[in-house]
Design a protein around this nucleic acid. Sequence first.
RNA 1: GGCUCUGUGGUCAAGCGGUCAAGACUCCGCCCUCUCACGGCGGCUACCCGAGUUCGAAUCUCGGCAGAGUCACCA
Length: 560
Amino acid sequence: MDYERLAEILFPEHLESPEYYETIYPLRDLPEGAKVTRLGPSPTGFIHLGNLYGAFVDERLAHQSGGVFFLRIEDTDDKRQVEGAVETIINSLRFFSINFDEGAGIDGDTGDYGDYTQSKRGPIYRAFAKRLVAEGKAYPCFLTEEEIAEIREKQQELKVNPGIYGKWARSRELTLEEIHKKVNMGEEFVIRLKSDGDLSKPEDQIRRISVKDAIRGELSMPENDQDVVILKKTGIPTYHFAHVIDDHLMRTTHVVRGAEWLPSLPIHVELFEKLGWEPPIYCHTAQLMKLDEEGNKRNLSKRLDPELSLDYYRREGYHPKAVREYLLTILNSNFEEWRIANPDADVDEFQFTLEKMSNSGALFDLNKLNDVSKEVLLKVPASEIYDFLRAWADEFRPDDQAVQTMLADRAYMERVLDIGRNAERNPRKDHIFARQMMENLTYFFDETFQITDPMPEEVVNAGDVRVILEKYLATYDHSDDNETWFNKIREITDELGYAVKPKDYKKHPEDYKGHVGHVSTVIRVALMGRQQSPDVWEIQQILGEDRVRARLNRYLETIA
RNA sequence: GGCUCUGUGGUCAAGCGGUCAAGACUCCGCCCUCUCACGGCGGCUACCCGAGUUCGAAUCUCGGCAGAGUCACCA
């Protein structure tokens, strides 16, 4: 067979030579050890936690080593394009401080290794496919869908591996004349890799490939024997071919991708071999899992788990720093240790390593995220939290009157946010995510203040609610310091026959109507509408004297 | 079904032939305390199973089992 001739028949258009592309995309001039990584999302615009997890690995690898992190849009599947998706991807990741150095972008591409959108790289793929055909390493296949289905049925009957390979690859047998004729008649075809693999041999004679994965170590699996499609009948490459061509030409050093790609690794290895290139270092990450209804672990799925989309966390109002730190705790097992030793260090100072990555899929743990978030937010100044809440509210709650009024007075809100946080020891860790914070803090604002909790039973039974509030109001002096203020409560407590020390009450409940905690709770409920809150004195200082008196009076009126 | 990956408490995980098998989160109890939170102390709960190698196995080998992934002109 004259393969050169075949290549001309199949690719009659003018194409640059492979050597041309090698020249215009030279090796990158980067310092020793610098890593080049890439994110290759399909442009559906949908990003979930798993994508973020992977993107984070790419980003750290590149930026920790002084390398390059670029965005390549993998839109070779023409069926699922979504308008504005690229922009969404970039913005979503930027929100979490994951920024690209080059690649497809909003204002066109930046970087010298473009085009960064696969659908625009047609001639490049075709040039290399043509070369493969000319060397007898790839061939046109005219099998129709129906014929392939028949082959599969037959294979099932015979209980052999399905697919187009070896003797099943009928188009391999076609002569140049037959092909030429079919092409002239306008028959459609795909280009398939002509695999050298043979898995029908006795097991001990099957060649195994061995790949060193940066996360998983030595990987060993049977070689590829499938004549996979590299160019679809539309002339567009499949993922396998695009990956090999692009990552070679874009000089990617580390390919970070999910473990679901592991089974197709032999295909990629053979492709690199046939093209005569050195493959990049593969880093197959474990997949984030989720517990399904039956209690089984399962991969995160974009179709089944919309609540795990990045948008969910943005809507709830998780701070990006919190999500970032949480991800790091499941990404690198030694991160938590490091964080305890370096409580105030910037996350980026942590040396992320592939070796410390887990091979098994982690279950997403909301409890842990919340805990991490509390710690993270404690370190974020109130003014910054305010900015964050403001942005969150404007994006997700623009018409929510309650939320908007709570944020109207910046200085006031900042004081509210800081309550109990500046204690020299054991500061409060109340803040987790925006929605939770806003719901938590409603009692600071007259517009959203509501009495939701009942008065304590002990006091109600004794009929002392009114007298406690009246005495409290009578002795209230807004300028009292915390200690003076509480001593007054102790006096009222004692006068009315309640225990000043809760312990006394617990020891001899028959001697008292209740204890100082119950008395304070009456004030809490009247003032905050809740039985639980941070320090009352501190809250009062923020509310201001007028508001405090007004709320107490209003409560007395309602029970009059 | 073939191939591949994974298997330590409820969750995430240290561990690399000798440990009373770390730690974090959750849960429970106690302490601190005017409530809640914070903090402190303590507790429950784990090496998938079975052989083998070895003086000794969570760690090495083999065989099961379980979960996950993948077998497209999708990525």
